[in-house]
Amino acid sequence: MRRTPPKSARDYAPIVYPGIMLVVFFVIPFATMIAVSFFKRNQGAFYTPDFVLDNYARFLTAFFGGVLAFSLFLAIMVAVVCLVVGFPFTFFLVRLKRRAQILWLLSLLSVLSLSEVIIGFAWSTLLSRTAGITNLFVALGLMDRPEALLPGFGAVLTGMVYQALPYTILVLYPSLARLDWSLLEAARTMGASPVKAFFNVVVPVSRNTIVATLIMVFVFALGSYLLPQILGRPRQWTLSVLITDQAIYQSNMPFAAAMAVFLVLIALALVGLTTLIGRREAEA
């Protein structure tokens, strides 16, 4: 690796391509969004370039605060549930025979090919009264009559976890596949049951992976706007749903942009806080 600082333009060549990509796909769109968030909304038409704070002012109300809080809560719940389900799953997956692992990973990848719309409709059918799983429970004698399990918080959470779980497992997989199994065996020789060893060795050793996974799923879930609509009641509509409404149905781009900027900032702040706490603990 070179140690001398780059001197000529040529020395910067290796970072030109990633630099351009970053500018084209992140800096320009995000800067545009920030700029639009300060534009003046012309009701009944579009917007004019300006510098006004109205869009942010409209957002800073108890109503949108509540929606934001729910969106963050939902994203955190999705991340936590995905981890609670995905971590043990991946832990067992990496111990399977290679052929079985490939089969599992392929089927997980195939779930990724499903669009949010398909996932939403599939779950709305699965949780419905007329064609859903409760009919199966009735047939098995577990329930008296079929019931609708949607719309509601549980349905939204289920759909979003289903959507995010393959990502969770694919992110956890490489790290758990590299896990030193002798750590677990060492814990067992010292009197820890497999479950105890899992919690006080495997989990803490994988802490960085866990934090990274939580952040990824959290950010992923924060952007979800179709599943809350399809599977939830209005109370479960996230900020992303309202942003979409403003952008698509109200053509209120400045307000949509302001909400989006706010959402990104809050998400970044939470991610920063999480990594900061993670580092503190690692040092402690």
Binding site: D180, S182, L183, E185, A186, A187, T189, G191, S193, K196
Partner: peptide, 18 residues
Amino acid sequence: THRRELGMVFQSLALFPH
């Protein structure tokens, strides 16, 4: 294993990094 009352040193040592 965890009820066998043994102590074991592994080839990798398996010290807990955390």
